[in-house]
Amino acid sequence: MADLLAQRRSPLAHLAGELAATGFMRELPYLSSYEVRADPAEPAMARLGAALFAGPLLAAAWPTAGRAVGTGPRYALWCGPGWYLVVDEPGTTLESAMAGLPAVDVSAARTVLELTGPFARDVLAHGCAIDLHPRAFGPGSCAQTHLAKAQVILHQTATATYRVFVRASYADYLARWLLDAAVEYVRRIDE
């Protein structure tokens, strides 16, 4: 298994240094993710919700439009009606929990860029047409939209932390675009 994992190569491994140099961007590689397409009212979905997110505060509720729910590193992101992206730590296998549901392992289809800090929102606004102001979008919000010329899923996980899910083939483009958009802000951090 260790041998197998060592053979992986993340879509942004070659830009790790440049991302780190900004001080506020990094790749979160190899996250497990599944696209699940089913009516949340279906019993199998209710069971899956309970299995994945059972907890005293979170009564197995699938997120409503534009929202993400999660406990710990595990999130369910609303992608569309009856369409969710379940995200978990690298290496987590959720196949058995999802048996009987139209759930597709898409872990390798996307990678995640995380932006955090006071300039994260401004950097994103250079290429994202949706309103990211706290009155419109905050922790727990998610959206499928465009960032620059790439289609992304945007997930705000904390006050100043955003995850950008981007298809693996677009990751190099989007990371280079973000690095360019970040130049002004990097300098401001240095000053």
């Binding site: 439009a65 992608c79 569309g80 009606p81 369409w83 959206a143 499928q144 939209t145 465009h146 289609q151």
Partner: peptide, 8 residues
Amino acid sequence: FHSAGCRR
């Protein structure tokens, strides 16, 4: 068709 969003 919201092709880049919820795809509905």
